[in-house]
Design a binder for these strands. Sequence first.
DNA 1: AGTTTCGGCGCC
DNA 2: AAAGGGCGCCGAAACT
Length: 563
Amino acid sequence: MAERWALAPAEDGGAELAPLGPDGLLAGPVLREADLASAVRGRPEVSRWVWRSTAEVYPRLLATGVRVERCYDVEDAETLLLGHEGRYGEPHSAAASLARLRGGPVPPDPPQRPAAPGAQSPLFEPEGVRLPLTDLVEVYTEQQRRHDRAGHPERMRLLTAAESAGMLVAAEMNRVGLPWSAEVHREVLHGLLGERYAGGGEPRRLAELADEVSAAFGRRVRPDLPADVVKAFAQAGIRITSTRRWEIESIDHPAVKPLIEYKKLYRVWVAHGWSWLQDWVRDGRFRPEFLAGGTVTGRWVTNGGGALQIPKVIRRAVVADPGWRLVVADADQMEPRVLAAISRDPGLMEVAGRETDLYQSVSDRAFSGDRDQAKLAVLGAVYGQTSGDGLKNLAALRRRFPRAVAYVDDAARAGEEGRLVRTWLGRTCPPAAGATQDAAEEAGIPVGEDEAGTDGRPWAPGYASTSSRARGRFARNFVVQGSAADWTLLLLAALRRTCADMAAELVFFQHDEVIVHCPEEEADTVVAAIREAAELAARLTFGETPVRFPFTTAVVECYADAK
DNA sequence: AGTTTCGGCGCC
DNA sequence: AAAGGGCGCCGAAACT
C-alpha cells in the first residue's frame, strides 16, 4: 500500500514527520526524530514524501545516500496552482500560502540565492521560511482541494506530481555531475585557440585573428567591440546596424572571414575556456545546478556553468568513466509531435503516428517534398513567424493541417487579448499586465516595465511590457514548448524509476535530450528503457493518442560522437 | 566603485 | 535570405 507522509526539517538537523490519509489530512500523530536522513531511511514503505521544498530537503538526504521514490513539493505546487488560478506572481512560499488561508498578512518571498561557481546546493543554508509540520499539512490539504477546482483536476495533479519528480531528478543530477575530462577539454581549447599568453590576455589564435581583422581594415580594430567594428565598416563605406553574424557574413570585405572566426572562438574562450574549466569542473565532473521548471514554459534552466549551452566542439570533453558508456537520447521532432497530440489534428496525428522523419512526411503532403520548407513552416507556426516566405508556407500548412494551426493561432489570439493560456497539463502562461495596456500602446504611450515577480521566479523577459503582438507570439509558442516540457517531465520520471534498479545514472537533460551514464553492459537496457519511458510518458500526459515519440539514441564513450 | 543593461552568441 | 519562441553567460557600456 502506497504510504504518504509529510516531512518538515527542524533547525537542529532533526525532523517532524507524520502519516497522511487519502484526503491529505493528518492520519496519525506528529513524530519528532533527531536525524532527518535516518527518519527517511528508516521508512522505506513511504512512497511519497510531502515537503515544503525539495531544494531544502533532498540534497541533505542525498548527501547521506538516501533516495526517495516520490515527493510532493508544496512550494512548487503553490507556484503552479497560483498560475493556474490566474494569480501569477503572488508569493508562493508555504508561509504565504498559509497566511492567505488564514487571512493574515501575506509575507513576501525571500530573495533567491545567487549562483556560486562549483557550489553544491546549499546543505546548511535553508532556503525560505520553514513551517511547523501541522501548518505545512494544512497548506497541503488545501492545495489538494485547489487541484479539484482546476479545469482538468487529474491533469493538474499530474503536473504538480511530475514537476516534483523533475525536482528529484534535478537534485540527483546536481549531485552526480556530468562526467568531464579536463584533459580533453584542454586539448580542445589548445587546438582551437592556441597557446595562452601570460597575463590572461587573448590566446594566440585570437590575437592572430584580431591582427588579420585590423590588417583588413587598415587600422587597429578590436573585433570584440561592436561599436568599433561598426565604425570600421562605416569607414570602409559599408553601413551596418549591428555586428551580428547574419548581418555581416554576406558582406564582401576581407575583414569578414577573420571577424566571424574570431567571434566564434572568442565565444568559446570566454564562455567555456580555461577559467570555466577552473570554476566548474572538479574531480572529473561538471556540476551545474539544474533547476526543474525554472522557466515560465516549464523548461529547465541551469544556474551557472551554462550547462544548457555547451558548444558542440566542447562536448568532446564529456567522456564516460572507464568501462562505462553515455547513452545519448534525443527526441525526434518533439515540438510538432506535441502539437499533433494537443491539437488532435487528424492529418498531423497521422504523420506523427509514424516514427519516420516528421518533416519529410509533412513536406510530402503539403510542400511537394521540400523538407526544408516544411520544417520552416512548422517551426514558423510554432514560433509565430510573421513575414517572408514563412507566411506563404504557413498558408500551405494551414490547408493540410487546419486544426493544428488553429490551435496555435487560438493561443496567440488569447495571448494578445490578455487571456490565460495553458499547457496540456495546466501550466499557465503569465497574463498581460492589464487590458488598459493595449489601449495605451495603441495610443502610442510607452508602457512601463511591469513589476517582477516577488518570488524571484522568472517572468518572460519584458513579457508584460511588450506589445500585444509579442505576447501573442509568446503564447503561441508557450502552448507547444510548455506541453513538450510537461511530457519530458513524465519521461524523466519514468526513466528515473528504471535507472533506480541499475547502476545507471541520469547525468544530463536539455529540453528534448537526455544522457544516461551507465556500465557498458547496461547500455542496451537503458536504450530500451528510454523508448518505454517515452511511450509511458505520452500515454500519461496526452491520454490515448496515436502520436509516437521516437528517440535517436547513441551509445558512446564521448558525447561529441553522438551525432 | 559597484550595479544594471546591452550586444552578441551558445544551446534547444 | 531572414524573421519568429525559450533560456544563460560574458565583457563592455551605461548607469548610479
